[in-house]
Write a protein that binds this DNA or RNA. Sequence first.
RNA 1: GCGGGUGUGGCGGAACUGGCAGACGCGCCAGACUCAAAAUCUGGUUCCCAAAAGGAGUGUCGGUUCGACCCCGACCACCCGCACCA
Length: 953
Amino acid sequence: MARYNPKEVEPKWRERWEKAHVFKTREDGSRPKYYVLEMFPYPSGRIHIGHVRNYAMGDVIARFKRAQGFNVLHPMGWDAFGLPAENAAMQTGSHPETWTRRNIADMRGQLKEMGLSIDWSREFATCDVEYYRWQQKLFLDFWKAGFVDRRESYVNWDPVDMTVLANEQVIDGKGWRSGAAVERKKLTQWVLKITDRAEDLLAAIDDGRLANWPDNVRAMQRNWIGKSKGATIWWPIASVPSFLPRATPDGGRGGGPNHGADPVEVFTTRPDTLFGASFLALAADHPLTAAVAAHSPEVAAFVARAAQGGTSEADIEKTEKFGVDLGLRVKHPFDPSRELPVWAANFVLMGYGSGAIFGCPGHDQRDHDFATKYGLPITPVVLPEGEDAKAFSVADKAFTGDGKLYNSEFLDGLSVDAGIEAAIARLEKLDLGKGETQWRLRDWGVSRQRFWGCPIPAIHCPSCGVVPVAEKDLPVKLPDVPAAEFATPGNPLTRTPPWLNVPCPKCGEPAKRETDTFDTFVDSSWYYARFAAGRTDKPLDKDAADYWLPVDQYIGGVEHAILHLLYARWFARAMKATGHLSVDEPFQRLFTQGMVTHATYQDSRGRWIPPEEKQEIDVSYESAAEDSFGHNPIQGILANLEGSPREFVERYEEQTNYLGKYLYVGVVQTGSHDQDLPLLVGSIEKMSKSKKNVVAPEVIANSVGVDAARWFVLSDSPPERDVEWTEAGVSGAWKLVNRIWDLAEPHEGLLARADPGKAPADADIDLRRATHATIAGVSDDIEHFRFNKAIARIYEFLNALKSFTATPALRDADLRSAPQGEAERKIEPHPEEPRSGVSKEARAEALYALVRLIAPFTPHLAEEAHEHIGGKGFVCDAPWPKADPALLVKSTVVLGVQVNGKRRGEIEIAADATNADAEKAALALDEVKRHIGSGAVKKIVVVPGRIVNIVAG
RNA sequence: GCGGGUGUGGCGGAACUGGCAGACGCGCCAGACUCAAAAUCUGGUUCCCAAAAGGAGUGUCGGUUCGACCCCGACCACCCGCACCA
């Protein structure tokens, strides 16, 4: 029979789909809508397996919902602005747009080969003028609404590339590309005021609006927003040295009329421990520290030393705490007669709170470390439950738990929570502090000093200041810049006078355009809405947006759990406030899929070896013990290894333990590299070019077809976990494709001859039950993103189907005695001679269900098989099969029988049998009798349909 | 340190609301077909005991229950995110 040939079949169906426009989304209010969206790709050049998995998942959902009768929107586009295009331009001398457009064309072709049910008519790239012009309009609306600000802030500046770097692009204090030491530079940046919505962005995480998001993503967002409740406290400076700045008119609040300088502002979450305060500590870059440093070489030396330590690195833990006494004293808010020293300390950060803390060494470990080092007093003020006040000590370690306050005057006896409230009340009464909430979340700096991005529509006028571009003048298009311009570092926009020089929209005098472009996260913050409701004359069509949004299912990598998803959430709120949208949460359900990983290989010199260049060898135990030269090859290989052969040795031992008979000697590279160098089997990692463990999707598509690739990336591992790419796994998927094809092949035209809708005879009941149980199970699994289980169910069904199709006479047992030549028939069951009693109708029903159930996973194969068995039209247009509830109920059930909780046998009884029947049947079993023995039956627990447990003693 | 998650055969993983642990796939073993191999097909495959009978078994220890991978308590290991966040 004909071998299934994906190279012919797959393109054929893609052409047919395209010709019939089957995946074009029609506005249709009569059907319920379903919007499936995968995070759109950055056009880096090629599709990789990770994309395949991401889009295969989305496509399963899209096709499934479509078959269920939903009006499905499943679009695709390109996150097309960004740094790599400019870097490529610098290296290759081509324009960023040329590079980007070429990549898009390549990747579009590759994506189309995947057979995705995408409405390509809605495709756009964020670098299309028709997209970014509306982004500029949204920005102007946000500006008008007060969501935009301009602020001075520090940025990472690469002096060689002359650009701002994101924190992730700074490696060990150096630019990731240029390797130049990064400078901190103060720039005026455009800012979107996302902190204004911090409260609501946080509230939505826990009030049910994000109920269908993964817990870890919600937790990450919660942490990132970082709300902490506490108090701001103003500590009056006791005696003010002359060199300190004079008090500002409003800054002296609470300090009384005659303190001479502003009080020191401190934020704390534990105002209840105020009586345990023994010092104040300021950040090294706190203004007050700077003021003292100007007059004290010792303090200046401290500031210099503190600046050396890596501030953002993870090895902060190792950094020793150190500080310096500033020589200032402050008055305790609750007892002005008590004065505390003011220190500067390296562990206090200017970027959080007010850059100053009060140290309570008894109840904060960092303060404890610091106080111990510098001999500052340590006073306990919280007594744990059940501890004796005299015996309790915090000399060795800070106590951070709950308890009762003591040593705290008016707070004595209160719990921590009550103490916090009482302390805040007193502070507010004294006008020395107030209850306050601090956020970890910062406003979003969107300025990038780059060319390849959406221009920020603003104009700098010498007399009017910063002025928005008039709406009639939109879009602010990127100017035509010769490709050669990109060879020079910096932003070409600053060197393009005809574009740069414009009249001020307000006064008409000569002015200059803003040369910053938007962070590309802005582009991806609203694309989902544009897909759904794009219009040529405005950002969105509100009616269409109201119909389609929110996105019903969003799918992407967990690496976007914080920034992209947070920005998109804020953007939706801002768009709602400016009348463009009606939703504030754009993504109803979120799914974060795992990565595709692959084993890595390294030779003994540490070079990465591509998987296709390695060769596995097995050596039998006998030959391993001694080869023809009388050497043990394992020992030989191990002896040759340079560096650390640990990984290799572990694998080797593992294999001997299990197999005994065979030794997995490992992997020897062949091909272009040195022969017979032992290869280390490395860890299993995310596919990456640097580790040479990538597998190109097109290579798979050209051999076993995209259906097999799609099937593979969805089988085995649950979708949220990583899946390891293995050759064995791919060949398994290929085998599956052929199994299904073999089933369809002998039944050519079956649907035409049988009516799968006609209720078949009773004798078919087992097959029909299997069919309907599979329909119900697969539907439920897809609905709940359990693709691996849906696939397992399909395998189970195939196994069942086979037992119905193969005639018992041709089973293995009979084959041995069968005459020569008879075996041929076993491989190819006769289509018209199925197991006795199974009708054409039952088989037609089973196969028709099968092709529709596999369609979301392997759409080309489904179409081909469907056509082969005589189906009309497209499978992707066919309705999703419905399970008949009557066939999901069994007439008899098998119950496990336990004695004292251990399984001892099973009984098969009618599904509607009474408990008494079940008990009787269970007690009649020989195994049960034996295990009860001479003991008395004390109790019998019967769970109908599940189990019988006999308690005997 | 804080937050989230995960621990089940040789491997990836199933097990519904507390009810037959190991579905399904891979790998492996045996057999059929073949001169042989590949492919395919059939059967087997948690561990211990030669087998049967039996026993043990879901990271560890304890608890609740007729019954625990599942619930509770304490711990261990690993993964992810954040992090001198006051």
